[in-house]
Amino acid sequence: MKESHDANQELTRLLEEAAGGDADAAGRLADAVHAELRRVARSYLGRERGGPTLQATALVHEAWLRLFPGGDASFENRRHFFGSAAQAMRRILVDRARRRERAGLDRGSERADDPGITAVVDDVAVPVEDLLSVHEAFDELAALYPRKAEVVELRYFCGLTEPEVAAVLGASRNTVTRDWQFARSWLHRRLSDRRSEES
């Protein structure tokens, strides 16, 4: 009990330091979040509850609850935690996509590596194809329009709903909707530009 309390304190400290701009703390926090996300995901798969289609938002919330059982809901901390989680999620996705690409796997959907089983895979497909290009375009977006990128990170990579994003960012729902619309349009345009460049 005491141990977990200490761990919690440690995490809260990391969170505060990261929020204060400490890059090292931010990195360690992201690692902790990443590890916790994996733990949550695995336990969901391994046991009866939840399951493979568990939404990112549920994962992240669960990780938040596990890491900060006291429910430290200070506005800045919450915002920073979700930011870290979003980055962790993005990193996981991108690493995974890169690995697959290096392994020479088809840049198609999940279904493609096991042909013939789509029947029993119920609507579960990770659009790996888009992922790397989205990631690259996302970096550009982040450089030009950081606030939009933050929304994309939370909404797309972290799976939060619009009201949740609004709450995390302390922005209005309308602003988030508009930012998301802007970012999608921007990314879409960027991606189609690139595609036409390539061809």
């Binding site: 996300l37 995901a41 493979p52 996705l93 579960v124 990770v126």
Partner: peptide, 9 residues
Amino acid sequence: GLPWATVLA
């Protein structure tokens, strides 16, 4: 709504 748990685990 990516199937996250699957991806992660």
